[in-house]
């Protein structure tokens, strides 16, 4: 009986901790948004972070995009050739990429590569008291450190998603035309009539903005809120990747249900 009471107490305790974290995270987000105005006066900070967060994720996005596009083309062909519908290969590839794989893959890769790096960087600054030191020098770390990284994430993810989508389709094009014998003209024309700019491309980009927002929020908050020890930092980085990835997948479901109403 005592064991059960202890268990419930532990669960309740954890639940309250979760709530308090969510509360802190929301307050943090609010402060972050308020600090964004600072960047208008200091655009150099934003540019530096766009490089650190966006450009450095570019390589993995390019490689992943290329291979995803190529594999998708192969798999699509295998399925479609039985129906004699192999000319629709470009449609299948492009719709999958634009609607789902582009935003989701980019979100996941971003969470893993840039998200964890952001958490580690900010967490390290916290544990070496650089954030505290900045406050004592009357420089608001929210404005100087956090806000640029936050905005850089929100801007980078849609850009990376667009690049992912483009290179994936090019990869699919390469496989379809070189390896599978589909005619170039057929490839592009099939897509151009059936892929809708608003329903497919814009919706995909909206997803990427949402994903970018959530992933960078989690990454920056975990770093800012972490326990300032090496163990705490490791846990925070792991949480960024896990929570960020789960958030991307969960939001993807919600957004897909909303956007592509069956």
């Amino acid at each position: 009986m005592n064991g059960l009471a202890n268990f419930l107490q532990a669960v309740g305790h954890r639940l309250l901790n979760r709530f308090s974290r969510i509360g802190r995270g929301s307050l943090f987000l609010w402060q972050c948004l308020l600090s964004l105005g600072y960047l208008l006066r200091r655009p150099r900070l934003l540019v530096a972070q766009l490089y650190s967060v966006g450009v450095q994720t570019l390589l993995i996005i390019l490689v992943a995009g290329l291979f995803v596009g190529m594999v998708l083309a192969l798999q699509a062909y295998i399925v479609l050739v039985d129906f004699g519908a192999e000319e629709s290969i470009s449609l299948m590839v492009s719709l999958s990429i634009l609607r789902e794989l582009g935003p989701v893959f980019t979100g996941l890769l971003f969470a893993g590569r840039a998200g964890s790096a952001l958490t580690a960087e900010i967490g390290l600054m916290k544990s070496t008291e650089q954030l505290s030191g900045m406050e004592m020098m009357a420089v608001n770390p929210m404005k100087y450190i956090i806000a640029p990284r936050f905005l850089a994430g929100i801007l980078s993810v849609p850009m990376l998603t667009a690049i992912f989508m483009a290179i994936a389709i090019l990869g699919g094009f390469f496989v379809a035309t070189e390896m599978l014998g589909i005619y170039e003209g057929v490839f592009w024309s099939q897509m151009q009539t059936k892929v809708d700019f608003y329903d497919d491309l814009i919706n995909g980009m909206i997803k990427s903005v949402v994903f970018g927002f959530v992933v960078v929020w989690i990454a920056v908050f975990e770093g800012y809120d972490c326990v300032p020890t090496s163990e705490g930092l490791g846990q925070a980085t792991t949480r960024t990747v896990v929570h960020g990835s789960l958030a991307v997948l969960g939001l993807d479901f919600i957004l897909t249900a909303l956007m592509f109403n069956v």
């Binding site: 766009l50 492009s94 850009m159 483009a166």
Partner: peptide
């Protein structure tokens, strides 16, 4: 480099909009 990154992204968007979708 950041400028190049942004340009690349814009080109990707243009390509997607014109060649892939029915814009």
């Amino acid at each position: 480099i950041v400028g190049a990154f942004v340009v690349l992204a814009v080109l990707a968007m243009v390509m997607l909009s014109l060649k892939v979708s029915n814009l």
